[in-house]
Design a protein around this nucleic acid. Structure first.
Lengths: 143, 143
DNA sequence: CCAATAAGTTCTAAAATGCAACTAATTTGT
DNA sequence: ACAAATTAGTTGCATTTTAGAACTTATTGG
């Protein structure tokens, strides 16, 4: 009997199957900035309550959020970020970079993620496995 | 008369309003790897043709793709990536990183974007304005 | 000049999303 | 302690998006 070879799959599809909808990344953003109650999320995002329920459940099942009672045994809940959630920060920053650079909206200041040590905005860089920056021209996107 | 102060807006929302659906980033991925005809995109993505039409138009209006005839005057079209499209590569790479690190699917090899100079996968790093890596702990996500 | 191809369009059906009102437990204020 | 307000949802229905398949129109290769 032959072992089944692990198929090469698209990690982008995989990611989008979890967070590729209109709300999930915004929920992640809000939870990371400390908006972690059902009602505050609903108000902040202006999302339908039933959809919010769905998305929170999906994100919890995916291990991106954990739901815990405000105090042991209570019914009031907190939605907290897991390490897997924090791991989405580079994605969020890359989107912020992209909008700040390419969006055509005059008279708008885009909110940035800030490096507390310097007070300056953080960005995102492509790097090789030596940690050195890599140019777009050096990429093989064949995929 | 007072000048209207530029409002601080969320760049993540802005980005997601363009590419925050289940298909757009996959279309971007495919175009970047050279899949740039209507039918090949449809076949590659298994997307409904009418939806593909919509998405391609949206992406073109957003300046992410340009549609040009295969030769001058022809009706056969090519969808090509603009610089604004290439600027999404860090986002794609960040999603690939995230899946490769956090997705729980045994026996799958995730396709990576490769650094042609080394043959090794490219990743993405958070960097301060000095170009130095920044830790998640040093970020102000208040936003 | 015929058969195949490419790039859509046009229906209709199904799924996802939005909206408002409702529930049931739990805090809060007095 | 107890009434009023809050919280975290649920439920049912309307609207919007997406999917699927067949159809159209022009091009193109042999």
């Amino acid at each position: 009997m032959r072992e089944k070879k692990p198929a090469v799959q698209c990690a982008i599809e995989e990611a989008l199957s979890v967070i590729g909808d209109r709300w999930s990344l915004l929920i992640v953003r809000d939870v990371l900035r400390g908006v972690n109650r059902f009602d505050s999320l609903q108000e902040s995002l202006q999302i339908s309550r039933n959809i919010l329920t769905q998305r929170l459940n999906t994100l919890e099942e995916a291990g991106i959020l954990v739901k815990i009672p405000i105090k042991p045994g209570a019914r009031r809940m907190l939605y907290n970020a897991t390490p897997k959630c924090f791991a989405l920060v580079p994605t969020l920053v890359s989107l912020i970079d992209w909008s700040a650079r390419w969006s055509e909206k005059p008279d708008t200041r885009w909110a940035r993620v800030i490096d507390k040590r310097t007070g300056e905005p953080v960005t995102v860089d492509l790097v090789g496995n030596d940690g050195e920056p890599v140019s777009l021209l050096d990429l093989d996107l064949t995929y």
